[in-house]
Design a protein around this nucleic acid. Structure first.
Lengths: 231, 231
DNA sequence: CGCGGCTTTGATGTTCATCAAGTAAAGTGG
DNA sequence: CCACTTTACTTGATGAACATCAAAGCCGCG
């Protein structure tokens, strides 16, 4: 068998367009030699706040939460995200340790590339640099926008917002299995667990949602939108 | 006089190190031809949310607030910042319109460079690209961190946090003129104006601060730190 | 001087956190 | 596979934190 024509697996990666769309065969082969695919089970920590940044990671399959732990041990969830977003957000170049932790909410597959390689690529390939910059900016903006959106809402509005976010952006389906606990929703929107549950119960009573176990069915999207808007 | 040795004014600019430290004389001259210095009086809008991004702007002198206007006409202040931070944060490359507005809190001087020039520079000069990326990331991170910090605090903690931020990061002095109205503080920390005022009154009563007109004097930094921490 | 905007304070009501107690669900070890 | 343990969820009652409303004082500006 002629190994010279053997194409690198990265060339066929369906996620090549994340930021690597501009890479030619040479770079793709190099990338392939510097990357590693890692599997994480639900609940596992992918990056830990404070640890040195050694790899550039992005999500291939699964679902993760980005969060930080406050001084009193509570978690603040910054965002919940799907592929193909980067896991090592922002500080990739600006700092040398992770500002936030990342944990798998579902079994996930991460593509991990040595940070030095990404840095070299950034310097050598301006198109790649541009794409990477644009993507990281978009992610930062999404996070900031989401945080501001949530901040201006009341309890019911925030819960409605999260449900709509999960429905529209994460699962793209009216029916889905909630990937987070009630407490995690609370940590996400900055409210108490008891009140999140209470609000969900209210939504059930009003026929806006229906739940069976972990499965949730959004019955009245319009009403939820209204609650989210004037929250 | 020999104009050939006349150095471009940008070469001497004290803010050259913002992101342009890596530029050689050739680029600096080019930059000089593509930049414009703009003056804004207190209260003036520098960038307006929704407007197309045509220039890359950064703050040379003065003080600005980054904010957005919500559907119901209220302002949400995202951050208050000094030179030499960029004014056209993040979306510089990732979008084509400003996500947020920027207004001058004091008379300010902005250095404005055509966005196309910055984009070219980014593609041609990898060191510049790297510096720019690192800076923009830092700013995004600062904003996200600040927002999360504020979110976990109560009213008194938030007011204390703002006072300490103004003292330490903005004015670097125990005594300063508050550059924002009470309402703007409220819009910054997401609380009502009346309660911000009430809290400031409490601080005065407890001998933590002293005010005369717009001037504020932080008397007990330690106590303020404690209030901010366990807020 | 008089008008309008910003500030201040008090009184009142709403929203939300907290506490407590109980139920369901999900692991765990025999 | 069942009893046991633990963890997550749920609901109600209570009180604290905060928003809102209203009225009055202050200040700058024409």
């Amino acid at each position: 068998m002629d190994t010279r024509i053997k194409t690198c697996i990265c060339a066929d990666c369906e996620f090549r367009d994340v930021a690597f769309s501009s890479l030619n065969d040479h770079y793709i082969r190099e990338l392939c030699n510097n990357k590693e695919e890692l599997r994480y089970s639900k609940g596992e920590i992918i990056n830990h706040q404070g640890d040195p940044i050694t790899h550039f990671k992005y999500l291939k399959h699964g679902l993760v939460k980005l969060f930080r732990t406050t001084d009193d041990g509570e978690q603040q969830i910054i965002t919940i995200t799907r592929p193909f977003e980067f896991v090592s957000t922002m500080s990739v170049f600006s700092g040398d340790s992770y500002k936030y932790s990342v944990a798998a909410l579902e079994d996930s597959v991460i593509c991990s590339v040595k940070i030095g390689f990404i840095r070299d690529l950034f310097m050598k390939n301006s198109e790649f640099a541009f794409n990477l910059f644009a993507r990281v900016s978009k992610i930062s903006e999404k996070i900031i926008g989401q945080t501001l959106d949530i901040r201006q809402k009341n309890l019911a509005g925030r819960v409605a917002f999260v449900l709509l976010y999960l429905m529209k952006d994460i699962f793209k389906s009216r029916v889905f299995d909630i990937p987070v606990s009630r407490k995690e929703i609370a940590d996400y929107i900055g409210m108490s667990t008891a009140n999140v549950i209470r609000t969900l119960s209210d939504f059930k009573r009003d026929g806006i949602i229906r739940t069976t176990g972990k499965t949730i069915d959004i019955l009245d999207i319009d009403k939820l939108e209204i609650i989210s808007k004037r929250g």
